[in-house]
Structures are given as structure tokens and as C-alpha cells.
């Protein structure tokens, strides 16, 4: 805690703009790397021969000459230890060619979609939280999309105020 306060004190000096982005927009890039929103992204780089977690750690890592390695959103796999087997779900691209055309048009979430009870209320979480327990992976830091960037990442207990929407019908007494 003491260390965090010390870091916060240094904040103004460390503020800097994100590195110049690639040609494609963030949204296009996101869509290109995911079959649909919720699918595991493919790996957009070649294997570096190191454990994925050495860059894609809890906070992500700026790797000189490569770019920002986004943090891993996975924290707890509830009895399913997949964390050490990243390539079980995330695969490299060996080619750009296709076997054949595919017309699948998957879920692309409206990133402003988290519903609020009223203007200043905390938005509910519009996606499954399982395998996305590290909220800050997508909601803060250089990898966060503008639309979902959190204004208060220093508040570590996100689900204290933001709850998952389940799509359950409204409450009614039987």
C-alpha cells in the first residue's frame, strides 16, 4: 500500500502519450483478431520463445521494438487450470490464406453498452466475467479501448460497484 502511494505521487511526471498506433484502427484490429467479441484473440506476433506470461502479465509490458503486450485478463479459472496452456485457446497465425470463404458474422458488442440505472450510476458488466477477472486488462492501460477506458483504475475492487448483467427477467413475486 505504501508503495502504491509512492507511485501515485510520481504520476504527473510519468504521464505520456501512447506510442504511435498502427495503420488499422483499434476496433478493426480487435475484430480482426477475434472471431467474435468473447472469442479468444489469435496471437498477432510470431513466437518469441519465452513464456507468454513474461510479457502478458497482470499489467502488460512495453517491449522495446515490438509494442505493448496487453495484460492477461485471466486470474482465476475456477478449477480449470488453463493459465499455463495459453496456446490451448490462443493460436498463432501461420498463413493469411483461407481454406474457403466463411459468412459468419459474430457478436460485436457496442462498447458503450453497459447499462446504467441513471446518469451517474456505475454501469453493469455486459459480458461474462469468467476468464476476464482482471478488469484492468481491458479497461485501463495502453491496450484499453477509449470507449471502455475506466476513469478510476486505482480502485482495485471493480465488482464492488459493477455487477454482471445476466439477462435474467425482472424480479416478480411468485
Amino acid at each position: 500500500m505504501k508503495r502504491a502511494l509512492w507511485l501515485l505521487a510520481l504520476l504527473p511526471a510519468c504521464r505520456e502519450a501512447p506510442p504511435p498506433g498502427p495503420q488499422k484502427t483499434a476496433a478493426a484490429q480487435r475484430a480482426e483478431r477475434r472471431l467474435f467479441d468473447g472469442a479468444p484473440p489469435v496471437i498477432p506476433h510470431q513466437s518469441f520463445g519465452v513464456a507468454c506470461i513474461s510479457c502478458h502479465n497482470e499489467r502488460g509490458l512495453e517491449v522495446a521494438g515490438v509494442g505493448f503486450a496487453p495484460p492477461s485478463p485471466h486470474a482465476d479459472t475456477r478449477g480449470m487450470s488453463a493459465i499455463s496452456r495459453c496456446t490451448q485457446c490462443h493460436v498463432f497465425r501461420a498463413t493469411e490464406a483461407l481454406f474457403g470463404a466463411n459468412d459468419f458474422d459474430g457478436l460485436r458488442q457496442d462498447l458503450r453498452r453497459g447499462a446504467r440505472l441513471y446518469g451517474g450510476a456505475p454501469p453493469v458488466i455486459p459480458h461474462q466475467v469468467f476468464m476476464r477477472e482482471n478488469c484492468r486488462a481491458c479497461h485501463s492501460g495502453p491496450a484499453a479501448r477509449e470507449e471502455v477506458r475506466c476513469s478510476h483504475p486505482e480502485r482495485a475492487r471493480c465488482v464492488q460497484c459493477h455487477v454482471p448483467a445476466t439477462g435474467a427477467p425482472d424480479f416478480a413475486r411468485e
Partner: peptide, 13 residues
């Protein structure tokens, strides 16, 4: 990197 992360998170981008 942690510093950078905090910086980006609170800064205007």
C-alpha cells in the same frame, strides 16, 4: 511499465 500503465490510465488520451 507499471508507472506507464498508471499514467496512461489516468491521462487524457
Amino acid at each position: 511499465d507499471f508507472l506507464k500503465w498508471l499514467g496512461a490510465g489516468t491521462g487524457v488520451v
